[in-house]
Design a protein around this nucleic acid. Sequence first.
DNA 1: TTCATTTCTTAACTTAAGTGAACGAATTTA
DNA 2: TAAATTCGTTCACTTAAGTTAAGAAATGAA
Lengths: 193, 193
Amino acid sequence: MHDILFDFISKYISLTEDEKNALLSLDLFRSVKKGTILLKEGQKSQDDYFVLKGCIRKYYIIDGEEKTTAFFTEMEGMTPHCVKNNNKSEYFVSCVEDTILTVANPDMGVELNTKFPKFQLMCGVLSEELLAKQQIDFDDFKTSSPEIRYLNLLQLRPDLIQRVPQHQLASFLGIKPQSLSRLRARILEKSKE
Amino acid sequence: MHDILFDFISKYISLTEDEKNALLSLDLFRSVKKGTILLKEGQKSQDDYFVLKGCIRKYYIIDGEEKTTAFFTEMEGMTPHCVKNNNKSEYFVSCVEDTILTVANPDMGVELNTKFPKFQLMCGVLSEELLAKQQIDFDDFKTSSPEIRYLNLLQLRPDLIQRVPQHQLASFLGIKPQSLSRLRARILEKSKE
DNA sequence: TTCATTTCTTAACTTAAGTGAACGAATTTA
DNA sequence: TAAATTCGTTCACTTAAGTTAAGAAATGAA
């Protein structure tokens, strides 16, 4: 299981055995049950997450309704906004499936970064990379209709459509569950012709 | 004019006179006329932009139609995606107004970063900050209707609504120009009651 | 200034998403 | 296992966005 993390890191920097051990000694790994809430609205947290296996989900509750805005699966990490500015979280993070993840907080970060400066380097590269990806995703979202968004998702992340409940997918696509059902029926109808 | 840049940088790191001079010697400053296209689709570019005065705009041409996805005004910077991966740009960048900006490319970056490592530090912090902001913007977009998006924009960036043509604003809000007109009329109608 | 072009708005019509309700299926939990 | 809850779909109806077209207003160029 640890290998997933090391494989991921090795895309950015190479680690010595010493460094791997230093990482392991931090006791980062957590195994969490489906449905577990990792972060609640209003909560202050310093943790950020990296998914080794499973799926976590970020959602807001607006007017009593859940609005899911992101999913994170294998080899994806999320840094809640509140980590940076020490504010209360505006959203929830919970597990869509039984999930294995690493949980890191800045204290660990500081420790690692002073011992092994290359970690800091990796974080910089990582966040630039994420920023670029995020911008493309946002542009795609803005320039597409819900139907096109769904078809794109079908192409790019077919696994998500299988493993995630429809009503959560719907708000991820910016629509209501009923509209997603209808949209799917419409597409199926078209493909029959 | 240079002060705007230094004011901005001083929010992240403090510069000595030497460092300021090193920056100035790179001849980063450009004054560009309204309508000038800074980056074209299909073009490879290594430049990134920081707006000192004016407004630049990022847009795609999809099925012959312009789709504006972002505006950058005073004290905002943009790094085209193609800078990172050396791909051809998928979008255009042009000036909404006469604009004064700095244009930097990685060669300059390398020079500065080796002379003054703190620049690199700033870039890391900056992109983490941008990433966080970007995520919030994306979440807001996903969880709001076009009308709410417009009202939010009116609150948060009233200047944009004044200085940017309506049809560019429309696609920025994810709708057609006609829908934006109608939506504005609708809001006006409501406020009269 | 005048002419041409672009931009903005309005309108009528079409298409798709939002809403509220109903119902069966799947999943939880007691 | 049985009851309760959650989930996905469908339907009828409402609301809002897309489309096409037309004309007025603003802008830019000759």
